[in-house]
Computed example of a mutant assay.
Amino acid sequence: MHVVDEWLQTIPSVWVYVLVGLVVGLESLGIPLPGEIVLVSAALLAAQGVVHPLVVGICASAGAIVGDSIGYVIGRKGGQPLFDRLGRRFPKHFGPAHIAKAEQVFHRWGMWAVFFGRFVALLRILAGPLAGALRMPYWRFAVANILGGVLWAGGTTAGVYYLGVVADKWMKNFSWAGLGVAVVFGIATTMWLKRKAAKSVAAEEEQAAATEAVGA
């Protein structure tokens, strides 16, 4: 993600918005792209004042909703043969095991699979096309798609943005004294864990030896 963050900083802010909407939209459509990584990187840039968090959230929400809707249409028209072709071309994302697992989730949860699928990497790619292929009524898909897209995109942007702001303020107020305390605490904790682990290993060895002696 650090590489993506550095790359986004080299392009104008308007293109960051376009890129967020495009990548998230293509991923939602069914193309395996790092939509979440791009969104998180853009939200971190917003925390640094490079872009506006509200615009990032809106673009990501729009991309998620539109991409999923297009994926639904493609899945409805292509059906199972579409997933067979994708499975041969992208076995890591559309292999038979992945499709079977996603279908099982859809059959069990229905429209909620679309909603919660927005928060799961595999279902985020498959939700739209699979909902269409399984002939889910569009109005049910649309409700879950809109709610899930807005909550995922807006929530991710807001959460990462505020965490980034807090982290930035904390780093500015960070002192060498604080660093020293953190290092000492880390060393003490490591030594305590090692001592505890050594005692556990010794106790297990004694118990194993006693068991062998009884068996003999």
Rank of each mutant, 00 (worst) to 15 (best):
W170Y: 07
P91K: 04
A46W: 10
A133T: 09
G155E: 05
I65V: 12
S200N: 07
E205M: 14
V143C: 11
I99S: 00
A213R: 15
G63N: 10
I11T: 13
L82R: 09
G186W: 03
R88L: 11
A208P: 05
L19P: 04
F94Q: 08
F174D: 01
I65G: 05
K77G: 05
P53V: 06
L44Y: 08
F90C: 03
V105E: 11
E36P: 05
L151P: 02
A127Y: 01
G117E: 12
I11K: 08
A102C: 06
G87M: 12
R85C: 06
G132M: 02
A97M: 09
L26C: 07
L147R: 02
E212G: 09
F185V: 15
E204C: 12
G30W: 03
R108P: 00
L54H: 13
V201N: 08
V20K: 07
G21R: 03
F106Y: 14
G79Y: 03
G79P: 01
Y162D: 08
E103Y: 06
L54E: 14
Y138S: 09
R88S: 11
A198N: 12
V143K: 07
L29V: 00
I74Y: 03
K101T: 07
G148F: 09
A203S: 10
L82A: 06
G25K: 03
K199L: 14
A210L: 15
G154I: 15
A167E: 02
V150H: 15
A153H: 04
E212M: 10
T211V: 12
M111E: 04
S175P: 10
L29Q: 02
Q104R: 13
V73C: 02
G49N: 11
N173M: 08
L33G: 00
G75Q: 13
W152T: 06
S61R: 01
Q80L: 10
A100T: 15
R135F: 09
L86M: 03
A42L: 06
A188E: 11
W15V: 04
I74W: 06
W7F: 15
I125F: 02
D84E: 12
V24Y: 00
G21D: 14
P96L: 10
M111R: 10
A216I: 10
T189F: 14
V38K: 05
W7M: 14
G57C: 04
I99V: 13
I187E: 11
A43L: 10
S69H: 02
K199W: 06
P53D: 10
I58R: 08
G110E: 15
V3W: 11
F116H: 07
V184W: 07
G71R: 01
F174N: 09
